[in-house]
């Protein structure tokens, strides 16, 4: 229960940082997605269902607080959370590149879906923008995960829980 609370607080912090100070590290408009990075950490540590629910919850909060289109972020982050949970739900050993590549793919998917559901315009270079941000997210995610203690790289069973699948 305490861990769930910590996840919630840290997700809220990620949303706060994402919507306030992220501009400090923006490169040509591309920003890393801190919320997605933490969602991936949850995916690594928790079960797939938990990640999916967290994705929905944090997406809904972002919708209500900053997004403007209620349900948009909730929809996309639910999907992304589910896919992330699926990617890290197996007992396969984690390698350094796996979360990084996953982050890139997930953020790319996230950005494209958001753009498609809001107003995707290929002439506006939405795809390039989405890819750039996804790459940036992957890089930052890699750095963050490198700083996280090694036990996080292990599956949730390392915390005394059995993986769901």
């Amino acid at each position: 229960m305490m861990r769930q609370l910590i996840h919630l607080v840290l997700l809220l912090l990620a949303v706060l940082l994402q919507n306030s100070v992220i501009d400090l590290i923006a490169i040509r408009g591309a920003c890393p997605n801190l919320v997605l990075i933490y969602l991936l950490i949850i995916a690594i540590r928790e079960q797939r269902l938990t990640t999916t629910v967290y994705g929905f919850a944090v997406g809904l909060f972002q919708d209500a607080a900053v997004s403007g289109i209620l349900g948009l972020q909730a929809f996309v982050k639910t999907l992304v959370g589910f896919i992330g949970g699926t990617l890290f739900s197996s007992r396969r050993a984690q390698t350094w590149w796996r979360p990084t590549v996953a982050l890139f793919a997930l953020d790319l998917l996230h950005n494209v879906l958001i753009a498609l559901l809001s107003s995707f315009d290929p002439n506006r270079n939405d795809l390039i923008s989405a890819s750039t941000s996804a790459l940036y997210t992957a890089v930052v995610g890699f750095i963050v995960l490198s700083l996280v203690p090694e036990r996080v790289w292990c599956h949730s069973s390392a915390f005394g829980e059995e993986p769901y699948d």
Binding site: L60, G71, T78
Partner: peptide, 30 residues
Amino acid sequence: RDYPVLMLLLVVALGLIFLANDQTQNGPAQ
């Protein structure tokens, strides 16, 4: 359990997109 929950959450999110965004004023939760 994952898929029913996933479907439920996606339906809720889609419902919000199509139903909750035509209000002229924000709800209390928002």
